[in-house]
Amino acid sequence: MPHLLNSYRAENITLRAGGRLLLDGAGVTVAPGRVSVLIGPNGAGKSTLLKVLSGELRPSGGQVRLGEEAVSRLGPALLARRRAVLPQSVEVAFPFTVAEVVAIGRPAGRGGHEAVSRALGRVEMAERAGEAYQRLSGGEKQRVQLARTLVQLEAGAERGGGPGYLLLDEPTASLDLAQQMLVLRLMRTLAAEGVGVLAVLHDLNLAVLAADEIVALEAGRVVARGTPHEVMTDARIGALYKVPARIGWAPEALPFLLPHGLVGDGAKR
């Protein structure tokens, strides 16, 4: 694990809103060259913690640090050079083309067209560059928005920000299986290029394929943290999701989840 001073981290985060405690001492570290995945049931605080880390939400307690700097002291422009964010959904009100949406991630200047083309190629949308964004399917829009974050990261690296950090909130939610695997491969490739990646994923089997580290949240607290092998156990996953769970082992020696109700006699047709 790289030294903490080279990481992007949320430390002991507390967040209250509307009389509710949304995060209770939660924390996560995004390290260069690694993929971390947040898991947990609905309402556990995964997206909220990601928003605190990105700077979108200000915590009631704790701190977010990017290297040695507190994120609260960084201006929006500097923060944008260091990290890119893909939220669950992005509304685009204007009649932009696919290429124009992706170009939003890059400051005006030389090399913009090439950067947009490279990013669209990485998400297999290069041939759709001139099409109207609004006519795309939900999954296609998601891939275009992912390309936008890639352009932003590349621009930040060119301006001295290093490989940067990518924060993804349910990036596979609206994608078919082939495109889910495309996103997972891209996450791993970006990590190999030095990017620190954090993703919220609901599909635990996809989380296992992508993650160097899995961080499990429940009721705003981190209840487990470790490698997929360490976190994915019958007892831990069963307790986290309140369902009987059975962990199997794939040929690649990776754990995978089978909900217990679909195992054994209950699965017979």
Rank of each mutant, 00 (worst) to 15 (best):
V90H: 01
E193P: 08
E230A: 13
L184A: 06
F94N: 11
R221D: 10
V263C: 07
G33I: 02
L177Y: 12
R159W: 10
V222D: 02
P59C: 13
L206S: 02
Q63N: 14
L190V: 06
F256V: 11
R188N: 04
V243K: 06
K51W: 06
L182S: 07
M125N: 03
E193F: 06
A267V: 07
L168T: 02
V195M: 08
W249F: 12
Y165H: 09
V28C: 00
Y133A: 07
N42K: 11
D265N: 15
V123D: 03
G194N: 03
I214F: 02
L175M: 13
E140F: 03
A253D: 12
G261I: 15
A207M: 08
G67K: 08
Q180E: 09
G45N: 01
E68G: 03
V28G: 00
G156L: 05
T233S: 11
E170V: 05
V37Y: 00
S60N: 09
H202V: 08
R159N: 13
H202K: 09
L262S: 12
R16T: 11
V222G: 00
A224T: 07
V116L: 13
R58A: 14
M181T: 13
M181A: 13
A31S: 04
L217F: 03
V263T: 06
R82F: 05
G161P: 04
F256S: 08
L4C: 09
F94M: 14
G55P: 07
R65S: 05
K46N: 10
V64E: 04
T29F: 01
P107Q: 14
P244C: 06
G112L: 12
V37Q: 02
V64I: 12
P163D: 02
P163C: 04
A17E: 15
R83V: 05
I214N: 00
